[in-house]
Amino acid sequence: TIEDAIKKLLKLAQKGQPYTFGDFTVTSEEEAKKLAKWLKKQL
């Protein structure tokens, strides 16, 4: 689910690992949080 993807994304971001989700490449926890907010709006 999208919720699971968001959780995984935040965990990876906390470890400092870049994470690619579709067109987004997230390289920081701050970016992960922005992406998570955006994804929730898409639901």
Score class of each variant (00 low, 15 high):
14 Q>G: 11
21 F>V: 07
38 W>C: 01
3 E>Y: 13
41 K>P: 01
10 L>Q: 04
36 A>K: 03
40 K>Y: 14
1 T>N: 09
32 A>E: 01
23 D>K: 07
22 G>K: 05
35 L>W: 04
35 L>K: 00
16 G>S: 04
8 K>L: 14
12 L>Y: 12
24 F>V: 04
3 E>M: 13
24 F>M: 03
25 T>L: 15
7 K>M: 06
25 T>H: 12
14 Q>E: 13
5 A>W: 15
37 K>T: 11
1 T>F: 09
27 T>E: 03
34 K>P: 00
41 K>G: 06
11 K>M: 13
20 T>S: 03
9 L>N: 00
39 L>K: 00
42 Q>T: 09
30 E>T: 12
23 D>P: 13
36 A>F: 14
39 L>R: 00
19 Y>N: 11
19 Y>L: 08
40 K>P: 01
31 E>D: 13
23 D>A: 07
15 K>N: 13
39 L>S: 00
38 W>F: 04
28 S>H: 02
15 K>T: 10
6 I>G: 00
4 D>A: 10
32 A>L: 09
35 L>R: 00
33 K>Y: 10
6 I>K: 00
19 Y>A: 11
38 W>P: 00
1 T>A: 09
30 E>K: 08
13 A>G: 04
37 K>P: 00
4 D>C: 15
26 V>W: 05
43 L>D: 02
5 A>M: 15
14 Q>M: 14
1 T>D: 10
7 K>P: 00
37 K>S: 11
26 V>H: 04
31 E>T: 05
25 T>E: 05
32 A>T: 03
28 S>R: 01
18 P>M: 08
36 A>M: 12
13 A>E: 03
28 S>Q: 03
23 D>M: 15
26 V>R: 03
35 L>C: 02
38 W>N: 01
20 T>A: 08
23 D>W: 14
19 Y>G: 10
31 E>Y: 08
37 K>M: 12
30 E>G: 05
27 T>G: 05
18 P>A: 05
21 F>E: 02
12 L>R: 07
34 K>I: 07
41 K>I: 08
38 W>D: 01
2 I>E: 01
35 L>F: 05
10 L>M: 08
31 E>R: 02
25 T>Q: 06
30 E>M: 10
28 S>E: 04
6 I>P: 00
20 T>K: 07
43 L>G: 03
15 K>V: 06
25 T>V: 13
42 Q>H: 10
32 A>H: 05
27 T>P: 03
7 K>S: 08
6 I>Y: 04
37 K>E: 13
42 Q>C: 15
22 G>L: 13
41 K>Q: 13
6 I>T: 00
13 A>V: 12
2 I>G: 01
19 Y>V: 11
39 L>N: 00
12 L>K: 06
42 Q>F: 10
31 E>V: 14
1 T>V: 06
16 G>D: 06
34 K>C: 15
34 K>D: 07
10 L>D: 01
28 S>M: 06
14 Q>I: 09
11 K>C: 15
21 F>H: 04
29 E>H: 09
